[in-house]
């Protein structure tokens, strides 16, 4: 049975909210009189079955405010959604709390009409998210290929997707997942900007507005516009293979200056390949330099697993 933890310093409001939630089917309602008490309750339960499924908190409280509670819960218990109850005049803080990760908010003036429905909606979302996490936990092999246009705004979505798959399949710990994603982002940015759009490091080091104009110009002009970026990912619990290919003229990676050489230390660009080589187990280019293959092995897997 889902547990709702209600956090409010005013006893009368706790009673009101408790009464509203008691009308819900199969809900257990618990109370905390402050943010500190709520955090102590969370620390005591840890990630156990008695952990609350959702927190409903007042925004304005002495001690830890609802906003601060949201921030701390997001950081330490990201699986627990927080719903804020807001008073008149606190809309701006509520917006900030939503931006910081609160799941929803209900103005106190309309608690009767909306609180229970909002809690039920958020609980449905939690159930779906947990179910999806369980499903992804069963994933044995992820294999997908994207053919991307030269739209920089796609990079974040691509990396987020890869992050989710690599994390779910358990190839490596979360810190290594981030390292993999940093390396992949560098490879994709190199391929898009230096490969397909043929933009140079010198252009990048110049005026950033001018550089942006160059990107806009080339993404709409041939031969650059029709070039595609191929990103192929194959990941299992034992190994990950990440191939990024552009349709530009390629380059000779052996001629890139070593950014850690003291002579090159002050150069603005040139660190992408360094990060790729540092964070992946193996990085290799094809003979024309327009395709990079990066391998990541599960730390516990034998070496041949990623071949």
């Amino acid at each position: 049975m889902p547990t709702v933890l209600v956090v409010d310093d005013a006893a009368v409001d706790r009673k009101l909210v408790g009464g509203l939630l008691a009308k819900g089917k199969d809900l257990t309602v618990e109370f905390a009189a402050s943010g500190d008490e709520a955090l102590a309750r969370l620390a005591a339960t840890g990630s156990t079955a008695s952990e609350p499924s959702v927190i409903v908190t007042d925004l304005v409280m002495p001690g830890i405010s609802g906003f601060e509670l949201v921030a701390q819960v997001i950081q330490t218990y990201p699986q627990i959604p927080v719903i804020l109850m807001t008073g008149k005049g606190s809309e701006e803080i509520a917006v900030k709390a939503l931006e910081a990760g609160a799941a929803s908010y209900v103005p106190k003036a309309v608690l009767h009409q909306h609180l229970l429905a909002t809690v039920q909606d958020v609980l449905d979302m939690v159930r779906e998210r947990r179910s999806h996490a369980r499903l992804m936990g069963c994933l044995q092999r992820g294999h997908f290929t994207f053919a991307l246009a030269n739209d920089p705004n796609l990079i974040a979505s691509l990396i987020n997707h890869v992050q989710s798959v690599v994390s779910s399949i358990g190839l490596c710990d979360e810190a290594d997942v981030i390292r993999v994603c940093i390396a992949l982002e560098e490879a994709v940015r190199n391929a898009m900007f230096h490969g397909n759009l043929e933009l140079t490091s010198e252009q990048r080091e110049g005026d950033s507005a001018e550089y942006q104009r160059l990107i806009d110009d080339r993404t709409s002009r041939e031969p650059f516009a029709s070039r595609r970026l191929l990103v192929a990912v194959e990941v299992t619990p034992r190994s990950g293979k990440f191939v990024v290919r552009d349709q530009g003229p390629g380059f000779d990676p052996t001629k890139l200056p070593d950014p850690t050489d003291p002579a090159n230390l002050e150069k603005v660009s040139g660190r992408g390949l360094l990060l790729m080589r540092t964070f992946m187990d193996d990085v290799s280019f094809n003979s024309t330099g327009n395709e990079v293959t990066m391998l990541k092995r599960c730390p516990a897997a034998p070496l041949e697993a990623a071949s």
């Binding site: 920089p152 990079i155 982002e185």
Partner: peptide, 18 residues
């Protein structure tokens, strides 16, 4: 981070910092 990114807007804010 790479999870929140829009090149043009980023360039605009970076110009202000410069």
């Amino acid at each position: 981070t790479f999870a929140t990114f829009a090149e043009a807007d980023l360039a605009s804010e970076w110009n202000v910092v410069q």
